[in-house]
């Protein structure tokens, strides 16, 4: 019964093709509006990771890893962490660790709240890529075992 084609059926693939971009876009929206509405780095990051996981479930491992390989994912993850830490360290410009040193702007504007949107972007990078990596690693365990048998 096993078809040579990787991934799920045509219906799933078509629906995925239509929705995956929207999910990714929604994740990015949640991240960028984190300081204005519920959401933020962690929630947005999870949604971004879900879009890649969705891709992997529907099309199989290779397609998703072609978009974001494991090596590149681990680099991005470290970059997210370093970015967050350097934003925190830059607070020393104003005298304190983690100081919100940027111009705060008006409330409810997209460009406001100083470093918080930047922090959100860093967190979403770390969380999104991190979750995706966890998923890939757990799946790879299973595949390695199947190959051995």
């Amino acid at each position: 019964m096993k078809s040579k084609e990787k991934g799920m059926t045509l219906i799933v693939k078509t629906v995925t093709r239509l929705t995956v971009g929207l999910i990714l876009l929604y994740g990015i929206y949640i991240v960028l509006h984190g300081h204005l509405s519920p959401g933020g780095g962690f929630a947005g990051g999870v949604i971004i990771a879900l879009s890649f996981i969705h891709l992997m479930l529907a099309f199989g491992r290779e397609t998703a890893l072609k978009k974001l390989s494991q090596a590149r994912a681990s680099i991005l993850e470290s970059l997210g962490a370093i970015m967050f830490l350097s934003i925190a360290v830059l607070g020393f410009l104003g005298g304190y660790f983690f100081l919100n040193f940027l111009f705060k702007g008006k409330p409810f504007n997209l460009f406001s709240a100083g470093i918080i949107p930047l922090c959100n972007i860093a967190i979403s990078l770390k969380v999104g890529v991190g979750l995706f990596t966890i998923f890939v690693v757990l799946v790879l365990f299973k595949i390695l075992k199947e190959d051995n048998e």
Binding site: A71, E77, S78, A81, I82, L85, A88, V89, F97
Partner: peptide
């Protein structure tokens, strides 16, 4: 704060450049 910053920065830099 450097007691936390330095090891954290080292950890992430190592995981980035260690390979």
């Amino acid at each position: 704060p450097f007691f936390v910053i330095i090891p954290l920065a080292c950890a992430f830099l190592i995981s980035l450049l260690g390979k």
